[in-house]
Design a protein around this nucleic acid. Sequence first.
DNA 1: CTTGACAATGGACACTTGTTCACCTAAACA
DNA 2: TGTTTAGGTGAACAAGTGTCCATTGTCAAG
Lengths: 224, 224
Amino acid sequence: MDTCSPKQLNTMKDLTLRQQEILTFIEHYEWRNGYWPSIREIQEKFNFKSTNAVMGHLRALERKEVIERIPGQARTFRINRPDAPEMNEIPEDATEVVDIPVMGDIAAGYPDRVEPAGEIGRLQVDIASAGYSSRRRSFALQVRGDSMVDAEIYEGDMVVIEPRDPHDGDIVAALIDGETTLKRYMKKGNEPPYLKAENKFYPELYPINELTVQGVAKAVVRSL
Amino acid sequence: MDTCSPKQLNTMKDLTLRQQEILTFIEHYEWRNGYWPSIREIQEKFNFKSTNAVMGHLRALERKEVIERIPGQARTFRINRPDAPEMNEIPEDATEVVDIPVMGDIAAGYPDRVEPAGEIGRLQVDIASAGYSSRRRSFALQVRGDSMVDAEIYEGDMVVIEPRDPHDGDIVAALIDGETTLKRYMKKGNEPPYLKAENKFYPELYPINELTVQGVAKAVVRSL
DNA sequence: CTTGACAATGGACACTTGTTCACCTAAACA
DNA sequence: TGTTTAGGTGAACAAGTGTCCATTGTCAAG
C-alpha cells in the first residue's frame, strides 16, 4: 500500500478488470431490480464457489473508495462516483442535477443477461425539469431520423422515456415494425388513438395497439 | 417550481393514514440511504414493540398492490407507482438511465444533512448521503433569451453546467454584468479568449477574465 | 350483538446474509 | 529466491432479517 510514486494515486479508475465487472454488475442489478444484490447473488452470477471470493473484491472496492458498505447489513451498498472539480461560485438560480449513466449495451428485455459493456458516458439531467416520477427503469433513446424535427427534436438527441400509459398529445416511444421510434400520441374523444410523426413532410398516421407504446418521452437531452 | 416529492406522486386514496405513513417512510428511507429499510428499522421508526405490526401493514400494502416484495429476501421492496404500469418491453437500442430523486428547493446551496427528526420530513433531503451522490457540484440553468438559438438552445431549456475550465468552442455559463448567461467560448492559438453569442443578430463579443466562466455546458435538457 | 377491518403485542423460529478463518494458486516483483 | 498482491476454495458461525403463531383491543357497519 505504499508504492508512493508521486503521481500514483488511487484515482478510482485503477480497478482490476474483475473488480470493474463486479462493480458493473452491482450497479446494473440495482437498476434492474430496484434493490441491491446480496453477496451470494454476486457469487452466483460469477460462478464463484465461495462467498469469500466476492468478499475479497468488495473489500478491494471499498479500499479504493469506489463503494461504501454498512457492515453487517444486508443489501446495502453505496456507489461513490467521482466529484466534479471544485471551481467558481455557484449561481443562485441553479438547480440540483441528476447523474445519469449512459450504458452501452442493454439486454433485449433487461432480465438477466447484462454483460459488462460499461457505460459510454454520463449525462447529467436536471431532474425537476425533466419531470421524472418513476424512480428507475426509465431509459434513454437516441433519436435517429428527422421525424420529430417539428417538435425540435433532432437526430442524435437523447430522449428520456418513462414507461407509462400515454395521454393525448404526449410524445411516445412506439414499437413500429420491430423498431422503436418517436411519435406523437393522438387520442381525441372516443375515436381510436393513433400515432403521428412530427414532420410536415411525413404526414403518416400509424395504427396503434395495446403493445405499441413503450413509454412517454419526458425530456430531451442533447449532449454538447 | 415543483418539488420532486415521492409521496405526492402516488395519491393513494384507499390507504389508511398509518399505511400511508409507513409507505412514505419506506420511500423516504430509500431516498436518503439508497437502499431499502429492514422490517425492524421500520418497527423502530414507529416505536412498534413487535415486528409483526410492520408485517401487518406491509401485507396490507401488498394486498392493495401499492408495494411488491420478494418473500424471504432482505431489504427488497418495489413501489408500484400508480401512473407507471409494467413496462412492455425495453427496446434493444435503449440506453440505461438511473435517476436520483432530488428535492426541488435547495437551489441556493447544498445544505447539510437535514434529518427529518421525528417527523416524516417532506422538505429537504440530504443529497450527499444518497446512494448516487455524485457530481453534485454540477448545476442546471434555465435559458432566458434567444442568444443561443443558432446552437439550437431555446428559451426555457435547461442547460447542465459542469464547473471546469473551458476549451475552445465550448458553450459556457459566464457571469456578465452580474448575470449568468450562456456564451460560446472562443480561444484561437495565442490570442486572448473571448465570448460570443450564438445568434447572428447578436454579433457581440465579450471580454473575458479569469472569473467570468462558471462552467461548461454539458447538455441541454428540454422538458416535454 | 356480531362481524370484520384495523392496529398492535410478544415470542419464537428458520432462512438469509455478512463475516471470518485456514488454505490454495498464479503472476509480479525485487 | 522469497515476498507481495490479486484471485479463489471450503466450511462454519453469528447476526440480520423475514415470517408465523396466538392474543388483545378498538371501532364502525350490519
